[in-house]
Amino acid sequence: MAEELQDGQPHYVGHRERLRERFRTRGPDSLADYELLELILFRSMPRRDTKPVAKALIDKFGTFAEVFSAKPERLMEVPGVGESVAFDIKVLQAAALRMSLGDARQRPVLSAWSAVINYCRAAMAFDDQEQFRILFLDKKNRLIADEVQQRGTVDHTPVYPREVIKRALQLGASGLILVHNHPSGDPTPSRADIDMTRFIVDAGAKLGLVVHDHIIVGRDGHASFRGLGLL
């Protein structure tokens, strides 16, 4: 049974209000990661003390970002996290990702590069499996579509250049930004990454498709093929 105060309320009620007040008056920077996570869990767990659950999530996954990037089944390995809590966490992740790409949707992607990088890192950097994503751009470099083309293992994703080009033509795209993640954390391009990119660049050039960049994201940062002189 939860510890109670003299007025009969559970002990965490006062703690919740103190956290809310600190957020209101001092802003989110005044809260530790687990405390911000507590606030988020208040609505998902209205009758439970969220502090131990929030701390357990941070302890298990390492960072705030990794909690939200974790798969639902892994979230539910934490005591107190059921299907509805895991669902709420993934909904909030989806909302955050949509917001992070909002700037790039409103103007040419190449002029909102920092927003693109932030989005790619938020979407993929902490995934425990490789995925290959493509941002399809029109003639004015505005975003047409953002699609995950393939998902793979912890260290490999099969990429089929013919399918990449085919999808670009279906969408009427003029430009591409290739993105994939390295679950190892190190975003350094491999020889296979370089060869695959070159194949797509060459195939696309014959059809008027421009590959603007290939971005690799990982826990330790990101690498840009164009920035490295590989494009």
Rank of each mutant, 00 (worst) to 15 (best):
E83S: 12
Y12C: 01
A223S: 14
G102Y: 10
L143Q: 09
P187F: 06
P10S: 13
K139T: 15
D59Y: 08
H214C: 13
G152M: 07
E73H: 12
F136C: 04
W113Q: 12
F136M: 11
S190K: 06
A96N: 08
K166G: 00
E77A: 10
R142N: 15
K139V: 14
G208C: 08
D59S: 14
G27L: 09
V217E: 03
R26P: 00
G185S: 03
A65M: 09
V164E: 04
P72L: 07
P108V: 11
L209P: 01
K55C: 06
I58P: 03
N181M: 04
P10E: 09
R191Q: 14
G102M: 09
D220R: 13
R107K: 14
D49F: 05
S30F: 12
D138E: 10
A86H: 10
P72F: 00
K206W: 00
L41Y: 05
V159F: 03
G152D: 06
R22F: 06
T157P: 05
L207N: 05
W113C: 02
P10I: 03
L75D: 00
E83N: 04
I134M: 11
V67W: 06
L231P: 03
K60F: 01
V179F: 01
D103P: 08
G62A: 13
C120T: 10
G185T: 08
A95H: 13
L57A: 02
V159K: 09
R26Y: 06
P183F: 04
H156Q: 12
G175I: 07
Q9C: 02
L39S: 04
L97W: 06
D195Y: 13
G102S: 13
P28E: 12
E66T: 12
Y160F: 15
F68S: 06
Q106A: 15
K166L: 12
G152I: 08
P187V: 00
F23M: 13
E147V: 13
Y34M: 03
F23Q: 09
L31Y: 10
G102T: 08
Q170C: 04
G27I: 10
S114D: 15
E77H: 04
D103W: 02
G221T: 01
Q106F: 10
V179Q: 08
L230Y: 13
A203R: 12
D146E: 11
T153S: 15
E130W: 04
E73C: 00
A104F: 11
I89S: 05
E35S: 07
T197A: 10
L37M: 12
K206T: 10
S84A: 13
D202H: 07
V67R: 02
G221K: 01
M1C: 08
R74Y: 12
D186W: 02
A56E: 13
G80M: 00
S224C: 05
S184T: 14
R24Q: 15
V210Q: 14
T188L: 11
Q131T: 01
V53F: 08
T197Y: 11
R47G: 01
